[in-house]
Structure formats: C-alpha cells, structure tokens
C-alpha cells in the first residue's frame, strides 16, 4: 500500500470538507474492495477519509411501504435485520450472501453501490426495486444511479447517506456465483412493484442494468415460461475466464426464470 493521510470524521459535512481539502482523497466505507485495491497498489489516494464514525449514515428504518437503509449499514446488519427480513426478504437474503461472513461484517451498502463493481449484488436490487439513493445533496433514482463500469452518478465529493427501497409485493434474487471470488457471474433480481414487474441484472454486462427484454416478455405476469423465448444480446455480455458471453446470456435467462418462480 502507498502512504496516505488517514482522517476519521464525525459528520457528513466534515467528510465533504476533508475531501475537498485533499489532493486526491477517497472516502472509506467498509473497505472490503478499496483496501485490497490499495494493497495491490492499484489505487493511491493522498487521503483516506473514514466514514465509519458518522452516526447519521447508519441504521435501518422501515415504514409500511419503504425500507431505508443507512449507507454505512453493513451487509450483515441488513441480512440480520428483522425489518428487512419482513418487508423485503429477498434483499436480506441478497445481503446475506455477499462475499463471506467476515466481509459482510465490514462491507456496507453505500460502499458497494458507490463502487459499482460489475459483479456486485446490491445494484441489481437497487434497480429492480426502483430504490432511491439519497446523498448529502440530492436524491438519485435507482435507474439513473449506475452509469458505467465502476461509475455512478455521484460527484467526486458526494456522499451517499441512505438508500430507500420501496417494499415490493414480491421479490426474489438469484445469484450464480463465481466459484473463486464468490461475486456474481450473473445475478438477477425480480420484483413485483407498484410500477409493475421490474428486473435488475448484475454481473452480465459492464454495468448492472434493468432487464427490459425480460420485463417485456413477462408482460406484467410472474410466469417464468414467458421467458423461454427471450433472446438476449450475447454481444453485450461480459466474457472472461469464468464465463463466456454466450453462457452469461444463458444464465441470465435461467436465473431470471428461477427468480420469477421464487416470487410466486
């Protein structure tokens, strides 16, 4: 790891100020991706601003129609939350299968979506559930948040405060794991929402996306057989040593069907 200045802050405004004052600062959430990246000397921030001391970024609040999760809430906390388990069990299940138990004890919702790894799980849920990302300065719709590989709509110094997930009528997440990293080779989140059936797909393409072709095929009905005839564009899919584009395209369909079935 290269040297850096470490700062721990206690408020969102202090964090933003610290970043502004730094040459090339970075916010540190759970660190489960950022620290390994820094260890491999693939990132060299001048300043690391630790957000873990900011109370307002933590915690889970549930109302009848929304679950709001603070950005610094860990995956383990989301997975174990009775509120999340009750309102959106698929989200609790997703959080409970990110990485491994020790990673889940550190990794956070905010860190995950801000990093926007193409194989991360949370983006599929944010998209499918039509969540709203609340930052220190605005609200960003889930559909608009993920803009490209490791890229989001966030400004350099913008901090995610919380994510609000509308409670769906039904939802399910199916993940096909990379046997080595345990990231998603493909993950499909299907949700029956007040907006109709929405599908978020992660792992398959450079950036998590909405499964519009799949949604269209379902035509508002949770009937997995309707997905049999969907043609997914193989040329848009990721291809690497773990899975070819063709296989990924196939897996998206299989996982989508299984998620639809699990919604019923």
């Amino acid at each position: 790891m290269y040297e850096f200045n470490y700062q721990k802050v206690e408020s969102v405004s202090a964090a933003v100020a610290a970043l502004k004052n730094a040459d090339d600062g970075k916010f540190l959430a759970g660190g489960q991706t950022m620290l390994p990246t820094m260890k491999h000397r693939l990132a060299s921030p001048s300043d690391v601003i630790d957000l873990s001391g900011i109370a307002e970024l933590k915690g889970i609040k549930a109302s009848a129609d929304t679950v709001t999760i603070g950005a610094m809430t860990t995956h383990a906390e989301v997975a174990a939350s009775p509120e999340v388990q009750k309102a959106i069990p698929a989200l609790a299940g997703l959080a409970g299968n990110i990485g491994d138990p020790a990673v889940r004890n550190r990794g956070t919702l905010g860190g995950s979506i801000a990093n926007n790894d193409p194989a991360a799980d949370y983006p599929a849920a944010v998209i499918a559930l039509g969540a709203t990302v609340k930052t220190d300065r605005r609200e960003i719709a889930g559909d608009d948040f993920f803009t490209g590989m490791f890229e989001t709509a966030l400004e350099e110094d913008e901090i995610i405060v919380s994510v609000s997930f509308p409670v769906p009528r039904a939802a399910a997440y199916m993940k096909f794991e990379n046997p080595a990293s345990r990231y998603a080779i493909v993950g499909v989140f299907v949700a029956e929402t007040s907006d109709g059936i929405r599908i978020g797909v992660t792992g398959a393409t450079p950036c998590a996306h909405r499964g519009l072709r799949l949604e269209a095929a379902l035509a508002g009905k949770l009937d997995s057989a309707a997905l049999d005839s969907v043609e997914l564009p193989v040329d848009k899919m990721n291809s690497d040593i773990h899975a070819s584009a063709e296989y990924r395209a196939h897996l998206v369909k299989v996982m989508a069907k299984r998620a639809v079935d699990a919604c019923n």
């Binding site: 046997p179 080595a180 990293s181 040593i241 773990h242």
Partner: peptide
C-alpha cells in the same frame, strides 16, 4: 498469468 489470485483461481 490470468489466474493470479484466489479471486480467479478457484480453491
């Protein structure tokens, strides 16, 4: 080497 870590080499 494409498989240079436990992220890519499945133990």
């Amino acid at each position: 080497l494409l498989t240079a870590s436990f992220m890519d080499y499945a133990m």
